[in-house]
């Protein structure tokens, strides 16, 4: 059985180390916060907060306290607030150890596309381009194939890029791939997923 969303998030959480400052993207990456266990992880929200807490209890929402996905959240005893220029100074300046984010496509050179489908969906890159260019380690968490069954792990991205050569690790429902010289290396397979399954679902070059 391939991993579900929560298993992918749990696997991504294993990549985090005690003391890290981490930025989590929208979607499955948000779930990573549920699996950090005893590790002392400080979550950054790029709209201007370090030490992001869980969602508020009903009735305790505060319009002045949201995350980068515009959801209401809470603060912790360690929380600090700052403006957007300061927030991206710490991102661009390499102070954030890791970013975990979703993707539409990733390729064997570590190129990432997750912000735009030409002529169709115009959303914008938000802070994704700054994050992938600035943080210490970029971990992509996504389904291995799209809804048509086509691989999202490609030889070369076809969509407009978010960053070039920026991805360090890819975690999908089928397993974990490391971005290495010459292609991708299989680090781990989800339980019940064979090496052949992984290779069949991956368009990118897999190196041994």
């Amino acid at each position: 059985m391939p991993w579900d969303r929560n298993q992918m998030a749990a696997r991504a959480a294993e990549e985090l180390e005690d003391g890290m400052y981490v930025n989590l993207g929208i979607g499955i990456p948000t779930l990573v916060a549920n699996y950090v266990g005893d590790k002392d992880i400080t979550l950054q929200s790029e709209n201007g907060m370090l030490g992001m807490g869980p969602f508020p209890f009903e009735g305790e929402e505060d319009a002045d306290l949201i995350n980068a996905g515009k959801q209401t959240i809470t603060e912790l005893s360690r929380t600090s607030y700052f403006d957007s220029a300061t927030s991206f100074a710490m991102i661009r300046g390499g102070k954030i150890a890791a970013a975990i984010l979703g993707a539409m496509e990733v390729d064997e050179k570590g190129d990432l596309a997750n912000w735009m489908i030409p002529g169709k969906l115009v959303k914008g890159m938000g802070g994704a381009m700054d994050l992938v260019a600035g943080v210490g380690r970029v971990i992509v968490v996504m389904d291995h194939t799209n809804k048509h069954g086509d691989s999202k792990v490609l030889k070369e991205c076809t969509l407009p890029l978010t960053g070039q050569g920026v991805v360090d690790l890819i975690i999908t429902n089928l397993g974990v791939l490391d971005v290495v010289e010459g292609g991708l290396k299989i680090v781990e397979l989800a339980e019940g997923v064979s090496d052949a399954d992984m290779r069949a679902a991956t368009q990118a070059t897999i190196v041994d």
Binding site: E46, D83, S84, A85, S87, F88, A89, I91, R92, M125, G126, G127, A128, M129, D130, A133, G134
Partner: peptide, 23 residues
């Protein structure tokens, strides 16, 4: 990019007409 937009404003306010970024 969000950080570029924030820095473009900060730079303008600080009298800096341009800057270099990896983003």
């Amino acid at each position: 990019p969000q950080g570029t937009l924030a820095e473009r404003m900060r730079a303008g306010g600080a009298g800096i007409p341009g800057f270099y970024t990896k983003t």
